[in-house]
Design a protein around this nucleic acid. Structure first.
Length: 352
DNA sequence: ATGATTTGACCAAT
DNA sequence: ATTGGTCAAATCAT
């Protein structure tokens, strides 16, 4: 049992409670917002109890999700995990047609050879224009390409793990603005982070081994200007400002154990030695961070609500013989968050 | 000087 | 032939 993690969870719960208090006093606060906060408070308790009873560290496979940083602006997420080759909307939508209709959808790929890369995680993120740094997912990425995608208004950016050369980490991601709303990003993760940045350099981010009981390593927040693709190029000065801002503000989504919905967790840890917990032996399926926009398909919504995660957890469990962490089990390090009155979100789609 | 990003070219899959 | 993904030289930022 990790004392720090328990403290972290309880701190999270406290912060959620404080936010709930704010929202209860705010007439414009939506019921859904409050519901989510309550949900997360309960989850914090659950996770704390789980840690105290030492039950949580070995079973949950959905511990690999990237979490998003940023000052604010991310509103909510939904997640599911599906095999790479399957459409998130397999029930009522042909994968190929779905792809054709929505160039922002990452559900189909050409790379088919059986490998670790066979699975992918898809994330939809909505951020306010001024908080694009929220796209930071805690990993360190290097952009290696950008491509105009047929039917897409915005180019797709291709990123691979910064430690690909050093440690052979094969994780990659793609980032693309959606046609519907430039503030919504599709981020598709493929492969597994096998890097351990702390071993690369003393100051680089570290991703904990699933079975590690060592103190959580520090994570590095990579510059995000390179993720601001698909929109008119940002003047260098602006980009620099964004990058700089990133260094001091972050938001992330701790995952909850049995739920697909989480609320952005705003943390203000003073010591940067805490570590994110989302690293997992395998990165499976797709995750949708559903943000406040009705244009997100009902298909996605349903798909994410209904038991996809458990299925993939099974897959994840089968795929990894090592210990998996619960998403919310580990402390996450992000500081200087102001989660006050400015925070808001619209989850009407999600909670109708 | 070094590392990251940009961007056109190249390649594989369809 | 078209499209998506990657490469790598040129460019930019630090």
């Amino acid at each position: 049992m990790d004392h720090k993690r328990v403290v972290y969870e309880l701190t999270q719960g406290k912060e959620f409670a404080e936010q709930l208090k704010i929202h209860l006093n705010n007439p414009s606060s939506s019921h859904e917002t409050q519901e989510i906060l309550i949900h997360n408070i309960l989850n914090s308790y659950e996770n704390s109890l789980s840690l105290l009873t030492n039950h949580v560290l070995t079973t949950n496979g959905s511990n690999d999700e990237p979490h998003l940083h940023g000052k604010k602006g991310i509103i909510k997420k939904m997640e599911s995990q599906v095999p790479f080759s399957e459409s998130p909307c397999s029930e009522d939508s042909d994968p190929e047609s779905f792809k054709d209709l929505d160039p922002n959808d990452f559900g189909a790929k050409r790379k088919t050879n059986g490998s670790i890369e066979k699975w992918k995680k898809q994330v939809k993120v909505r951020v306010d224009m001024e908080f694009e740094e929220a796209l930071d997912d805690g990993y360190s990425w290097k952009k290696y390409g950008q491509k105009d995608i047929f039917g897409a208004k915005h180019p797709r950016g291709y990123y691979r793990c910064t430690y690909r050369q050093l440690q052979g980490c094969l994780a990659t991601k793609q980032v693309q603005r959606t046609n519907e709303d430039p503030n919504i990003f599709n981020m598709t993760y493929q492969g597994t982070h096998t890097c351990h940045p702390a071993t690369a350099t003393d100051t680089s981010p570290t991703l904990p081994l699933p079975s590690s009981s060592s103190p959580p390593p520090q994570i590095q927040h990579p510059p995000l200007q390179n993720q601001l693709l698909g929109s008119p190029k940002i003047p260098q000065t602006d980009r620099k400002a964004i990058t700089k801002n990133l260094e001091t503000h972050s938001v992330y989504f701790p995952s909850t154990s049995n739920n697909n919905f989480v609320f952005p967790t705003l943390n203000s840890t003073s010591d940067g030695n805490e570590t994110p917990s989302f690293i997992t032996p395998t990165t499976l399926g797709s995750t949708y961070f559903m943000m406040s926009q009705p244009q997100v398909s009902m298909c996605e919504k349903i798909e994410n609500i209904v038991g996809v995660e458990s299925e993939l957890n099974d897959i994840a469990s089968a795929a990894t013989s090592s210990t998996s962490f619960h998403n919310a089990d580990l402390p996450l390090p992000f500081g200087d968050i102001e989660f006050g009155s400015t925070f808001s979100f619209d989850n009407s789609i999600f909670f109708d």
